[in-house]
Amino acid sequence: MSILSQAYTWINLKFLLEGLGVTLEVSLISIVLSFVIGLLLGVIRYVGIKYFSAIVGFIIDIIRNLPLLLIIFFTYFALPKTGLRMSPLSASIAALVVFESAMLAEIVRSGIIAVDPGQMEGARANGMTYWQAMWYIILPQALLKMIPPLVSQFISLIKDTSLATIIVLPELLYRAQIIYGQDTRYMLPMYFMIAVMYFIVCFALSLVAKRMEKKFG
């Protein structure tokens, strides 16, 4: 028992909670940026601009099929060789955004496909241009359909942020390691505590996703 009370001092818990704050901050910034970029890429891929869409689609496929860890390494350890300098915080966000926007582009594309194709024709028959129909008729419906997978993707992102511990981003897992690095008896209590923290955040979000799925699905 005494080990637990030593491990879970307020100082240590506060140190961890600040780490959870960093995790959530990085995830939130990344999901917002990835959503914007992913939306753009998904639409580009869907509409089929000659060559351009194919190239964009192809780059998306490459990024989607690489391990995120490799993208993090590449961003932080290899890109500086080209003159692009980043702190661990911005490198983490950049790597997550590159990876997530490729994932979201696919979600956007399938969301658009899932909207009845007859609607585009109907809108155009009523005098709308292609882009007007896309913006006012197709995208709003596609976005509603995308909300549940978007939330799931956000959950993945929160979990994936833990990989950035390797480039010394002071997030939750990194801080747990700092604490048990000073006294290795805290290892089990620390892993238990951060597992609980991740679980609470991600599980709560997954409940939200389920509820939305019922509402919009």
């Binding site: 190239i55 192809f58 060789k81 080209t82 003159g83």
Partner: peptide, 19 residues
């Protein structure tokens, strides 16, 4: 064709000048 963008990246990197 997957390999092509990767090569492009390499070339890009080689050109990158660090001040």
């Amino acid at each position: 064709i997957a390999v092509v963008p990767l090569f492009l990246l390499t070339v890009l990197a080689a050109c990158g000048q660090k001040q």
